[in-house]
Simulated assay, not measured.
Amino acid sequence: MQAILDAIGSGFLSVMGFIGLNADLMDRYGLRFLDGVWVTLKLVLLSVFLGALLALPLAVARVEGGKFLARASFVYSYFFRGTPLLAQTFLIYYGAGQFREQLTDIGLWWFFRDAFNCALFTFTLNTAAYQSEILRGGIQSLPAGQMEAAQSLGLSRVLAYRKVVLPQAFAVGLRPLGNELVLMIKSSAIASVITVYDLMGVTRLAFSRSYDMEVYLWAAALYLIMVEIVRRVWDVLERRLNRHMLVSR
């Protein structure tokens, strides 16, 4: 993670130096911007990881679940993909306050009273819906003979999913999953509206004190650098994991 922050910091300074940096503004807010990058990365990476854990059973439920589980998974995905992330964030952040007594009674108010935790919870639920649809598409794109061949070798259905189906589904969905990660980086700016001091939150704070529009240029450059790093890393990852597909072509 420190290596990523160092790469973002050096890239940021290079871009800002090229376009003509306001040195006084950088002295006052430069370190806070890098702190905001750290919060953004922590929010995005945690939510995408936790969302992946939730997406897996949701995707399998869509394909293998009975009538009830398949419909419940569809309703979950339909709601979180069909409503704005901003509305979902407000619903969790402000809605949790309406149930403070109940959440206190069950020992969860400590979690929901923190804006970062509310953003993390909302982003996890949101990205899980998108990731589950990507995995479902990957599973259903595989020939039915894959499962039949695995079971003919004596593998149980669960083991066949673990050893045969899911690795191929992840490989098929690798590019869309990378796109989802990029979208989450850009969508993370929404967290700033509930007082999370991520990159956009720090930008808004810096602008409110300096009234210098240059800080928004800094934010745009930092988001661009993060996205470019993810894109390049994902390209390498995709080439290494899908080498057998490239050879077969």
Rank of each mutant, 00 (worst) to 15 (best):
Q2P: 03
Q2A: 15
I4L: 15
D6W: 01
F12Y: 13
L13V: 05
L13C: 00
L13Y: 04
A23S: 14
R28L: 11
W38H: 11
V39F: 01
L41C: 11
L45K: 02
S47P: 06
L50I: 12
G51E: 04
V60G: 01
E64D: 04
G65A: 08
G65S: 08
K67C: 05
F68A: 15
L69R: 11
V75L: 15
S77M: 13
F80C: 10
G82H: 01
L86K: 01
F90Q: 08
F90L: 14
L91S: 04
G95K: 01
E101I: 09
L103N: 10
W110D: 15
W110Q: 12
F112T: 08
R113Y: 04
D114W: 01
L120M: 14
T122K: 07
L125F: 10
L125Q: 04
A128R: 08
Y130E: 10
Q140W: 00
S141H: 05
Q146H: 12
E148F: 02
E148D: 14
R162M: 09
V165A: 06
V165L: 13
F170Q: 08
A171W: 00
V172R: 05
G173D: 02
L174E: 03
L174D: 04
R175T: 10
S187E: 14
V193W: 03
V196W: 04
S210Y: 08
M213Y: 09
I225C: 09
E228D: 11
E228K: 02
V230M: 09
R231Q: 15
R231A: 15
V233R: 09
D235P: 00
D235F: 10
D235Y: 11
L237V: 14
R239I: 05
R240N: 15
R240V: 12
H244C: 08
L246T: 15
